[in-house]
Amino acid sequence: MGTVDSPIKLVATFVGYNGAGKTTLLYKILDRPLPPNFVPKVLPWDEGPLYLTTRTEDGREVHLHVRDTCVLDEYDRFRPLNFPQTDVFVICFPNTLDLFWRDEIVRCGFQEVPVVLLKTKVDEVSSDNMEKQVCEEDVELSKDKVGWLYSLEVSVQNEMLVKELVSKIVLAGLSHQKTKVERKKRRCVVL
């Protein structure tokens, strides 16, 4: 009888301002229906597990745990409590790219964790808000400042884009876990 590899556990923490669509996107990623009279705040913990099971390209099973964060001022001190054990940060923004989130991640000591930069609500682009939209050059210029590994655009209405997002999050998370293992191997122990 062959051995069964235990699933790889990855943690993705989603950050971004209110109205960026984080919570709605997480409902879609977790394949949950939006509750009636839905008012997005933070993904409720009492509606079941906050992870999905997916597979890597080579067939390994991955449990992708997701963490939603709240932006309200009263949560400023609690939000960083979501950061430990994070394998990838997903910075969500609908219109304007703000470095506040990367600064908070760095200030809390997690600058080595990869970032996926995610432009949300791409289906809501209209001529009224075109001048507010972030252009590709702005995103590319932010690569050095933010240090993002992947940059994607997503709409919760488009199933393929959501699946691509999950795939990129898993790739970024796996790269971080590999780096952590390599760093542990290089540590010296003084006896």
Rank of each mutant, 00 (worst) to 15 (best):
D98T: 11
D98A: 10
F100T: 12
F100W: 15
F100M: 10
F100E: 15
W101M: 03
W101L: 03
R102L: 08
R102Q: 14
D103F: 06
E104I: 09
E104M: 10
V106H: 06
R107P: 06
C108F: 10
C108G: 09
G109F: 13
G109R: 14
G109I: 13
G109E: 02
F110V: 03
Q111L: 08
Q111G: 14
E112P: 07
V113L: 04
P114N: 07
V116D: 03
V116M: 05
V116H: 06
V116W: 02
L117E: 00
L117T: 05
L118M: 10
L118W: 07
L118P: 02
K119A: 08
K119I: 03
K119R: 15
K119M: 13
T120M: 09
T120Q: 01
V122H: 04
D123V: 12
D123A: 04
D123F: 09
E124P: 00
V125H: 09
V125Q: 06
S126K: 14
S127D: 10
D128V: 09
D128P: 02
N129C: 09
K132L: 15
K132A: 15
K132W: 13
K132G: 12
Q133S: 11
Q133F: 09
V134K: 02
C135E: 14
E136K: 13
E137K: 07
E137A: 10
E137W: 08
D138Y: 03
V139Q: 01
V139N: 00
V139R: 01
E140F: 05
L141R: 15
L141W: 11
L141H: 14
S142Y: 08
S142V: 07
S142E: 04
K143P: 02
D144M: 07
V146T: 12
V146F: 02
G147H: 06
G147Y: 04
W148H: 14
W148K: 01
W148A: 00
S151N: 11
L152E: 06
L152P: 01
L152N: 06
E153G: 12
E153T: 09
V154W: 00
V154R: 00
S155D: 11
S155R: 05
S155C: 09
V156I: 12
V156E: 00
V156N: 07
N158S: 12
E159Q: 09
E159A: 04
E159M: 05
E159P: 02
E159W: 04
M160T: 14
V162T: 04
E164S: 06
E164V: 07
E164H: 03
E164G: 02
L165P: 07
L165E: 11
V166N: 01
S167Q: 10
S167V: 07
I169A: 03
I169C: 07
I169E: 00
V170G: 04
V170Y: 05
L171Q: 14
L171C: 10
A172F: 10
A172H: 05
A172V: 08
A172I: 09
A172R: 02
G173Y: 03
L174D: 02
S175K: 13
S175I: 06
S175D: 12
S175Y: 05
H176W: 13
Q177L: 13
Q177M: 14
K178N: 09
K178Q: 13
K180C: 10
V181E: 12
V181Y: 12
V181I: 10
E182I: 11
E182K: 08
E182Q: 13
R183Y: 10
R183N: 15
K184E: 15
K184D: 15
K184W: 13
